[in-house]
Design a protein around this nucleic acid. Structure first.
Lengths: 112, 112
DNA sequence: TATCTCTGATTTATATATAGACCATAATGC
DNA sequence: GCATTATGGTCTATATATAAATCAGAGATA
């Protein structure tokens, strides 16, 4: 059962979301798309698109990414090919890392 | 009432989410943080962090951004100052744009 | 000016994401 | 090897994000 929420966000996260929303709106206007049209293309409601464009952090990331992609905003400033390349590279690095993080055993004799 | 979902995502969105998740995991390992520790810092559950690291698109963007920020992943490859600057710039451009997109009146006499 | 429509906001019902508990497995350190 | 701990699942209850409908007002075009 979810604990009674009230999540707190860093200033950076808030700013990033607001910026992304503004970029989306700008791109949408440039594309001469109405909010309803873009929402339809993304398969979401107009209300959700409004919240995304306002930088609301309580939206599912899939919807945000989808809208951004449709209006041509490159996440990570990378196209599909770059994305795959980065992903491969990252996976290679992950493969070389220890599979789990181990904290130096807390039980270092505190019994005396 | 929400329509019975089953959203569809573009390949690009999926790849972007998977990459972001991998970057988060890599950064977490590099920081020697356990999943539980990072989840605690972000104020989310360990299960949610797991889904984020797997690139699940059905997570709230606030949680994803927050985690990314904590482990030092710069969204938009920009720091706080850059973010504000970009935001101001974008807002300026938005202020110059028409407030709404107007489709050339569909009712152009289709009655004959 | 007047009309048309896009936008913004609110409300409601419901689908669903989340927290928390649990268990099994894997990986680490000794 | 053994003990310990992190990870990766699953399951359930509930908080909440979402879709849809509605309304008011702004803004664009004629």
């Amino acid at each position: 059962m979810p604990k009674s929420i009230t999540r707190t966000y860093s200033q950076y996260s808030r700013d990033a979301a607001v910026l992304l929303g503004a970029l989306i709106r700008e791109a949408r206007n440039a594309s001469k798309l109405t909010a309803q049209e873009l929402a339809d293309r993304a398969g979401i409601s107009r209300g959700l698109l409004q919240r995304i464009e306002k930088g609301n952090l309580k939206c599912e990331i899939g919807a945000v990414f989808e809208v951004a992609t449709i209006v041509g905003i490159k996440l990570f400033e990378a196209d599909e090919r770059d994305l795959n390349q980065q992903l491969r590279h990252t996976n290679e690095k992950l493969a070389l890392m220890p599979k789990s993080v181990r904290r130096p055993s807390k039980k270092v004799k505190d019994d005396f």
